[in-house]
Design a protein around this nucleic acid. Sequence first.
DNA 1: CTATATCCGACCGTGATTGTCCGAGTTTAT
DNA 2: ATAAACTCGGACAATCACGGTCGGATATAG
Lengths: 150, 150
Amino acid sequence: MLRLSKKADYALMAMKHLAEKGGASSTSAREIAEQYDIPIELMAKVLQRLVRAGLLVSTQGTRGGYMLSRASEAISLAAVIEAIDGPFTVTACSTEKHDCEQYGKCSIRFPLWRIRERIAAALGTVTIAEMAAEQVAVAAPVAHAAVVRR
Amino acid sequence: MLRLSKKADYALMAMKHLAEKGGASSTSAREIAEQYDIPIELMAKVLQRLVRAGLLVSTQGTRGGYMLSRASEAISLAAVIEAIDGPFTVTACSTEKHDCEQYGKCSIRFPLWRIRERIAAALGTVTIAEMAAEQVAVAAPVAHAAVVRR
DNA sequence: CTATATCCGACCGTGATTGTCCGAGTTTAT
DNA sequence: ATAAACTCGGACAATCACGGTCGGATATAG
Ligand code: SF4
Ligand code: SF4
């Protein structure tokens, strides 16, 4: 259904939270989890993945916690989502693995491929900083495309 | 992971097939299914849903089959996908149903909402006809959006 | 009437997703 | 040194959506 996973949702919340906190202070997993009513353990796991993806840095021990690894302006939504859910593929025939029965006969994948690029672009141009700022203005290239469906 | 279901994939294939066949002749579910190695029964179910959504018309009895209800130019990908997978929601808090634990505390859903609009636009501006024509050129308003990610 | 086709709903197996638990390693405060 | 607080990492169970299947009803052409 084209929906992003809840873990990704949590990840975005955490990233935004950390972005707002800003600079030097590290925030514990528990603090974030409690603030948003997320199971602590799950949040920890999500944060760990973000660390492994290089989006966060963690400090251990008492008063330890997580911090953004780079400026929030330099982190796109796409990066966060891919860190959690893996490289997102619109179709089963992603970039390489064409593990699809009807790969040969399929005439769909070509135009569908373009769609993927667009979505990737949409996710890649929005940064955590923009989200945190709660800016309503969208200075993105895809902005004016009206919803035509139905 | 932001992936569309296989049923939707099948639906798009079928729609494209019907669009190529064009006008008056109706095509049986079996014909399409065999051509693309899709389980007949599944294909039938998919087609039925498309009928209920008003995208196809079906004629029963021997020599029956399916036909497009309108010109292929007037059918967007979004329409097909929504007919199969239901209204697509990027987050669990779709347009109305906010069945999400942390709806109140969540500060994510607002910017995330815009993302959904963009994806909807991307899917809404591409028609079955464009897919069928296998045109590489995209004459859609969203066209120039370059891939910026990474 | 008979054969062929769509239609419709119900059903199940599998695999991904969500959420939980526990043990181990690390750092800091006392 | 000891204890406390925290992260790390994987393993595990419950849940649920999805892909695929089956059987019966119905309508049409011949
Ligand atoms: S059906 Fe076509 S588009 Fe869909 S996954 Fe298979 S090859 Fe890709
Ligand atoms: S309310 Fe926030 S957390 Fe819940 S689904 Fe919407 S965006 Fe995700």
